[in-house]
Design a protein around this nucleic acid. Structure first.
Lengths: 257, 257
DNA sequence: CGTGCACTTGACAAAAATCAAATTTTGTGG
DNA sequence: CCACAAAATTTGATTTTTGTCAAGTGCACG
């Protein structure tokens, strides 16, 4: 909930720099844009709002604009009713990528959303005149690419525990990266969305939450808020403990750091 | 095998343009770089070769260079022995992305490989002076991002048939995109790599190939070369046919087009 | 012409998907 | 604030499918 304060300075792109070495705050998200860039972008952007559940665009539509989230959470999904969520998007993220001029995925607001809308034509004009801005976009894309690769890794896991534990850890890290309090992890999406994101059935997601709670790994205030009670237990689940064999195929579960 | 002819003009980046509308050759890969850009990049690049199976770099190493494949196939994997392949890379692809100055993934030659090696420092210098080049890199990254998203989708599938059929289709499309003959699909990687890429066990990959052959969907000249005998059968498998229910969760399998 | 590695195959167990029904929450109109 | 309807979630019983473990098999290379 806690609204971001100074975000209306203009569009905001958050990511880790792919090339800068030995950062002060390792792994933290940085504002990639300078104030100058943000206010310049603000001149071509308009602020739009979406109610929870509203469709922002559908795959196949003409891609007229790129969006940059100010607040709220968006889900990007395949459009066809495949039941797969491609990614969740948070403040500081860009979405609305197109292929040959049309949106590839559909996007829907998971919570109430405020975003900047950047018309593709103006944006391209601005990009072609500003190498520094382009560089920042490149950084953000690298960031998203790594993120997508991790998602593939998550989805490839076979154990429900591991998937959900990793998912919760991801939510926590995002919350931390945004500088929010992490004593409690907020879960902005419903069980069904979680299932479609991590690649398991709704029923299995539910069962897994129940199991994690019963095992004392997490505690839930309500469906949308959990607390991590047994950090090492969670880490062990994520590390693929619940020690399984040691066969040919090496260890097994492990998220890429 | 068939060596690319004019690729030694300099580095080559192949992708579909995310914004250009109504292309002549829909969905085809284009050379993103101009000849000018290619020869400029050639001045900072050196050509390197790797034998089949050679490690190109390991995750965690200082990321000193970016690579651009001239010929051959590379696999990018998590480094930790997790048994997951992040992606396969083909001619016209870039690899060697870093996070905070170190390689994120490890890379190994699946076949003999020839590639351009671009030192990060020179590359960044060149990028910051050339907005058009940066734009092309942005296009390539968008392309890779979509590709990674499709990979997540593939890996999320539950049916072995569907995974392997989709994988074969992907190989075929890549072959077509590179302008090669598609009467036969070449499989540059071994069964184990396929398993690690699509997220199933080696045994299951093997069984699935056997099953597809027995059902007459494909025919194999040898382990590394198959022919698609029943296109509609293959398409039906990919579409998630083998018609399953119609429940709450909508259809089911579908690749994002 | 053997050795090894890559692949195939068989038998069984494990884990989640499904199907289906019971419950809890949430949102709405009085 | 309450009654309801609708939506979201939990749970149970059963089925499906692939992972695992463990033997083969066959081809490539020295």
């Amino acid at each position: 909930m806690a609204q971001r304060r100074s975000d209306h300075t203009g569009p905001s792109i958050l990511a880790v720099d792919p090339w800068a070495r030995s950062n002060p705050s390792k792994g933290r998200l940085h504002q990639l844009l300078t104030n100058e860039e943000r206010s310049q972008l603000a001149t071509i952007a308009s602020v739009v709002r979406f109610k929870k559940g509203a469709e922002i665009f559908a795959s196949g539509e003409q891609a007229r604009a790129l969006f940059n989230i100010i607040s709220g959470v968006v889900k990007s999904y395949s459009g066809d009713e495949s039941g797969h969520i491609v990614t969740f998007l948070f403040p500081g993220d860009l979405f609305g990528l197109s292929e040959e001029g049309v949106y590839i995925n559909s996007a829907k607001a998971v919570t109430p959303v405020t975003a900047y809308q950047l018309p593709v034509s103006s944006l391209r004009r601005r990009l072609s005149n500003d190498a520094a801005l382009e560089y920042h976009v490149i950084c953000k894309l690298c960031h998203s690419l790594r993120y997508a690769q991790r998602h593939a890794f998550l989805v490839a896991q076979r154990h429900a525990d591991l998937k959900i534990a990793t998912f919760l850890q991801m939510l926590e890290q995002l919350q931390a990266a945004r500088g929010e309090d992490t004593s409690e992890v907020r879960i902005p999406m419903d069980r069904s969305d979680i299932g479609e994101y991590v690649g398991m059935s709704l029923a299995a997601v539910s069962r897994t939450f129940t199991s994690l709670i019963q095992r004392g790994v997490i505690k839930s205030r309500d469906r949308r808020h959990i607390q991590i009670r047994d950090r090492s237990g969670l880490d062990k689940i994520i590390a693929g403990s619940t020690v399984r064999r040691s066969g040919r195929r090496a260890s097994k579960k492990r998220d890429c750091t």
